[in-house]
Design a protein around this nucleic acid. Structure first.
Lengths: 137, 137
DNA sequence: CCTTGACCCTGTAGTTGCTACAGGGTCCAT
DNA sequence: ATGGACCCTGTAGCAACTACAGGGTCAAGG
C-alpha cells in the first residue's frame, strides 16, 4: 500500500471553502506563480488535489500573519528543501515581527495625536474649531 | 489697506519644499480635485499662492494623521463653511481614532502570534521546523 | 431531451495613494 | 547661445487583491 491517503479532488469553489480563500484570489495566486497550476477536467475546470490544499492553507496562514507575498514565496521554497537549516525561516519570522512592531509604534503615535486633537473640540462652529485650526498652518 | 498680507507666488517645486509634499503628489492632488488648480505663467508653469500653501499644509497634516483622502476632502469642504457646527469634524477625528485603534489591536494580535512562532525555532533543519509545521495544515 | 441555476472560464479594469518614468518645453545665469 | 535646473503632460507601476463582462459547463428536475 502507498503511505499516501487517497487524494480527493476539488473544484476551485470547494478549495476556496476548504481554505477560506476567495476564488478570485486563488486564481490570482496561480497567475503570479504562488500556487501551482491545477489539472483541468474536460470542461477546462481547475481540479485541485491535497497538495494544493496544503499549499494554499500555508499561504493563507502566512498571509494572515501579515507576511508579504514575496516572503511567502520564499517560505514555500524553503519548505520544499527539507535539508536546509531552519535559520532562514526563523529570520523571516523575526523580521516580520519587527515590521509589525514598527507599525504598532507608528500607530500608537497617531493615536496619541488624534486623542489630543479630539479632546480639543468645544462643540462650537467650524469658524472657531480647534481641530481645523490645528490642521491649518 | 487690505487686511490680507501680500501673497507670495510659488512654483510647484517651491510649494513642495514649503509643505514637504512631493511634486508628483501635488500634481496628483490637483488631478483628483483635492487641491484646486493653480494659475499658469506664460510658460505654462503652475503658480501657487498662499491659499494653496495653507490648503496643502492642511492636507499634509491630515494625511500624516492617517485620514483617508476622501475624509480629507470632506474636512476641507467643512472648513470652507464656517457657520456649520464643529461636530461633524469632531466625528471624523473620533472615527479615525477608532480606526487606528482597530489596526493597533489587529497588529497586537499578530505580534503575539509571531512571537509565539519565533520562540518555537530550535535551530534544526527545515524538515523538522516547527514554524513551517505551524503554517502547514 | 431540455431547461435552469449554480458553478466555472478568460481577460481586463478598478481599488488606495502615491511614485516613476518618457519625452518633451522653459527659465535664467554665464 | 548653451547648459543645467526646473517644469509640463500622459502613462504605467506598486501591493494584494476584488469586481465585473461576456462567455462556457454541469447536474438535477420536469
Amino acid at each position: 500500500m502507498s503511505e499516501k491517503m487517497t487524494s480527493v479532488d476539488h473544484t476551485i469553489g470547494a478549495l476556496g471553502k476548504l481554505t477560506g480563500v476567495n476564488i478570485e484570489t486563488i486564481r490570482y495566486y496561480e497567475r503570479i506563480g504562488l500556487l501551482p497550476g491545477a489539472a483541468r477536467n474536460s470542461g477546462n475546470y481547475r481540479i485541485y488535489d491535497d497538495r494544493h490544499v496544503r499549499r494554499l492553507t500555508f499561504i493563507r496562514k502566512a498571509r494572515d500573519l501579515g507576511f508579504p507575498i514575496e516572503t511567502v514565496r520564499r517560505m514555500l521554497a524553503l519548505s520544499d528543501q527539507p535539508d536546509r537549516p531552519c535559520g532562514e525561516v526563523d529570520a523571516l519570522v523575526v523580521e516580520q515581527m519587527h515590521e509589525v512592531e514598527r507599525k504598532i509604534a507608528d500607530l500608537e503615535r497617531l493615536r496619541a495625536e488624534l486623542d489630543r486633537l479630539a479632546h480639543q473640540c468645544r462643540g462650537g462652529l467650524v469658524s472657531d474649531c480647534r481641530i481645523i485650526e490645528a490642521l491649518s498652518p
